[in-house]
Design a protein around this nucleic acid. Structure first.
Length: 425
RNA sequence: GGAGGCGUCGCCUAGUCCGGUCUAUGGCGCCCGCCUGCUAAGCGGGUUGAGGAGUGAUCCUUCUCUCGCGGGUUCAAAUCCCGCCGCCUCCGCCA
């Protein structure tokens, strides 16, 4: 949630941010009203309660008739306290709900508007020119079949649409990418983590995935547990309810976990292959640091993402994601979009967000500092999701005969293999 | 799954049987000060967290909540009752 003080002291800033995201700014006024109501209710309750406590002391010391008289008065007071307490709880809840529904502020650099209104920051590499080379590129489905790497038919048979098996070279590639990513993260000072991929509502809610995004989240039937769509969720909740020592910052974690997404509302979109699926694996970077440092750390996360994509020798561009496409938690977001030869366009491969203190407030993660205990900043970034890099890699480095050249940095992770060769002619 | 034990302000701990004097005890650690050639020791003070109010800041003053969480009983709950969660021990089952 955003800082309530900003809402109270500078509501116009919040309104501007909401408008930039393409949302109504009416919630600002209703929230402020809820805040005023809440504070009035608290004052009411506290004065009644103070009176009750004072009289309780008199009761303890009084005797006989005097005691009976006091008891008569305290009985009615007790009822009033109970009522005031309930009213206060209701008001507090209304305020909390209003605040929790409000998205984070946005960075000045973040472009206004929706999905199409991003700013391109940089192009890296050049898309391969297959026409000049004299052959039409196969898409990853075809390549996956030739290489015996991806089994979509059996995926559908066993688990349904948007499922698949990685087999042979595909499974090896998957393992190679994850290992390379983890080695890079380790070399860059990250602590490796394998988090649980089932979490309680608090973790989902705290990371901002139970609002509008709830439709995309799998819930375990009969239990209060959710399957995570990214290890950002368990990693943000990792330090929930803790007061951290700022001397240990930045806390950098690289977490490997499966990711589950219902992909509700994307029927008919990206139905071919393993581009948009209900499950994939991912190595996610997650950082806790100070608000002041978060902006520079965000750039560092982007640099590490780029280092990984560079190792795959694929062409990509970096975009500054527009406000309407930030999601609830992000203040600023960079996506790296790789060139997918079969689609002849750039598609999102990695994404890094600075969530500032938005998630930390929801999850009660603070740091001890000069100005008391203040919320920390959280950031996340994809180091390596498994599917889309495999798509980009197979399609980019394919050769006319259907074999695929392995980028040099990846070779040590594939037993030194320089080429993946077709097994199904 | 069954039985039992435990959960107190960073850590340890007193208090719970028998409700009010708990504004939660003491120790360790930490912070500030005094003392001292220096260090240690010693002495004094401070040290849970959150949310309100008081001339909208810091400070200060004051109040409320916080003894795993949520209810209940009562004028009054760390203390009594119920439910839940977590940890530990034992039994059963099982990768």
């Amino acid at each position: 949630m955003i800082d309530p003080r900003i809402l109270r002291d500078d509501p116009d800033r919040v309104r501007a941010s909401l408008t930039k995201r393409g949302l109504s700014a009416d919630v600002v006024d209703s929230s402020l009203a809820a805040d005023a109501a809440r504070r009035a209710a608290i004052t009411e309750f506290e004065s009644k309660r103070a009176e009750q406590k004072a009289m309780g002391k008199q009761v303890a010391q009084a005797q006989g008739e005097e005691k009976q008289a006091l008891l008569a008065r305290t009985r009615t007071l007790a009822a009033e306290v109970k009522e005031a307490d309930a009213a206060q709880a209701v008001a507090a809840r209304a305020w909390d709900d209003a605040l929790k529904a409000m998205p984070n502020l946005t960075a000045p650099e973040t472009p206004a508007g929706g999905e199409e209104d991003f700013t391109v920051i940089e192009h890296v590499g050049t898309p391969r020119d297959f026409a000049a080379e004299g052959f039409a590129p196969r898409d990853h489905v075809e390549l996956g079949q030739l290489l015996g790497a991806i089994d979509l038919e059996r995926g559908a048979k066993v688990s349904g649409s948007r499922f698949y098996f990685f087999t042979g070279a595909g499974a090896r590639l998957h393992r190679a990418l994850v290992n390379m990513a983890m080695d890079m993260a380790h070399a860059n000072g990250f602590t490796e983590v394998v988090p649980p991929s089932l979490v309680k509502p608090r973790a989902m809610e705290g990371t901002g995935f139970l609002g509008q995004a709830a439709d995309d989240v799998y819930r375990i039937e009969g239990q209060d547990l959710y399957l995570v769509g990214t290890s950002e969720v368990p990693m943000a909740a990792f330090h929930s309810d803790e007061i951290l020592d700022a001397d240990t910052f930045p806390l950098r974690y690289a977490a490997f976990s499966p990711c589950f997404r219902k992909e509700a509302g994307s029927h008919g979109k990206d139905t071919r292959g393993i581009f948009r699926v209900h499950w994939f694996d991912k190595v996610e970077m997650f950082v806790y640091t100070t608000l002041e440092e978060s902006y520079a750390e965000h750039e560092r996360l982007l640099a590490w993402e780029r280092e990984f994509l560079d190792a795959l020798e694929i062409a990509y561009r970096v975009i500054d994601v527009a406000a309407g496409d930030l999601g609830l938690s992000a203040y600023r977001k960079f996506d790296c979009e790789a060139w997918i030869p079969s689609q002849e366009r750039y598609r999102e491969l990695t994404s890094t967000s600075n969530c500032t203190d938005f998630q930390a407030r929801r999850l009660d993660i603070r740091m001890r500092g000069e100005d008391g205990n203040t919320p920390v900043a959280t950031l996340n970034g994809t180091l390596c999701s498994t599917n889309r890099p495999i798509i980009a890699l197979l399609e980019t480095h394919q050769q006319a005969d259907g074999s695929v050249r392995v980028p040099e940095r990846l070779r040590p992770y594939l037993g030194g293999d320089e080429v993946l060769k077709p097994v199904n002619a």
